[in-house]
Computed example of a mutant assay.
Amino acid sequence: MADGGPDQRGARARPRSRAVAAPAPSRLATDGFDLARFIPTGRSLVTALLIVVGAGVAWFAARETPVFSVQKIEVLGASAGVSAQVERSLRATEGASLLKFDTDAARLSVLALPTVAGVRFDRAFPHTLEVVVAPERAVAVVRQGADSYLVAESGRVMATVERRDRPALARIWIKRDIRLQEGARAEGDLLAAVTAVAPLVGTGFPGRVSSVAASPESLTLRLRSGLELRLGDPVDVALKLAVAARVIPLLTSDTTYLDVAVPERPVSGTLNSQVEPEGMTSTQP
């Protein structure tokens, strides 16, 4: 039959195709990342808040109560006399909390002492304030008429002393128109004189300095033996003193001066009189 040919039957039997939409894979699931795990729960937030509040309360209690109060001030690195001065300068901190300790104010208070060159503080909980002191180093006694002043290597006037105190230190004589007081600092030619004798302290130098004459161009030390030690300009003073220390024991008893202005060529002599250059800071008493 014309209507029932094979083409028509094949067309009826062919299955009809259908498009199916597949769900897109989840990126979060593929990567193994679960954002929900990183969102804090209400319980963890409350716990964190309680920890912060507790820490704040503990800090306030420690700061405002005697829990960490200063009950002992321990001074290190200084003599008994200087330590006592430091303790007195910090007396206002006793009983205060170590957590409220004002380091800057305390440093200014201690450094105001003419015997202290430097200081640092350590809190030794629960009740000790450690004070590490760098004391000034005394190198000379400055004489001004009947008054005597102990002077540090830095040029700072440490204290007034008796005329015969510290006999091993050099004596520097100054005129009455130079004003000195405790805590003040030497200037100009006086500072140059102090700097000149500083290297002698504790070295066993063969001779004690009885006076120092200083000007911008010249330094001269006079020893108790009467020997005049001429250093020339205030340059390489430590080297010149080291040379003098080796030469002095070789001099004869009638030598009146030793010139080490040129340390490579020291010169000694027996002049009976010496003229002090005009404008010197100090003179032989």
Rank of each mutant, 00 (worst) to 15 (best):
D3K: 03
G4M: 09
G5K: 10
D7H: 11
D7Y: 03
R9G: 04
A11T: 11
A22N: 00
P23Y: 04
P40L: 05
P40H: 07
P40S: 03
T41W: 02
T41Q: 02
R43P: 01
L45F: 05
L49E: 01
I51G: 07
G54L: 00
F60D: 01
E64F: 09
P66A: 07
F68Y: 10
S69F: 00
Q71F: 03
I73G: 03
I73L: 13
E74F: 02
E74H: 06
V75D: 06
G77K: 13
E87F: 03
L90E: 06
A92E: 11
E94R: 15
L99C: 00
K100A: 14
T103F: 01
A106E: 01
L108I: 01
A112D: 12
V116F: 05
D122T: 13
A124L: 07
P126F: 03
E130Y: 01
E136D: 07
A138F: 03
V139D: 11
A140H: 11
D147R: 13
S148H: 11
Y149W: 15
V151W: 14
V151P: 12
A152R: 09
G155H: 07
M158N: 10
V161S: 06
R171N: 07
I172F: 04
I174Q: 09
K175W: 01
R176V: 11
R176I: 08
D177H: 14
I178A: 14
Q181A: 12
E182D: 14
G183C: 03
E187C: 00
L191N: 00
V194T: 10
V194D: 03
T195H: 03
A198P: 01
G204K: 08
G204S: 05
P206A: 08
R208V: 04
V212S: 10
A213Q: 14
E217N: 12
S218M: 03
R230W: 10
D236E: 15
V237G: 00
V237T: 15
K240R: 14
A242W: 06
V243G: 07
A245D: 06
R246F: 01
L250H: 09
L251C: 10
L251Q: 12
T252Y: 02
T255E: 08
Y257A: 04
D259H: 09
A261E: 10
P263M: 07
P266M: 08
E276V: 14
P277V: 13
P277K: 13
E278W: 01
T281V: 15
S282F: 06
Q284C: 08
P285V: 06
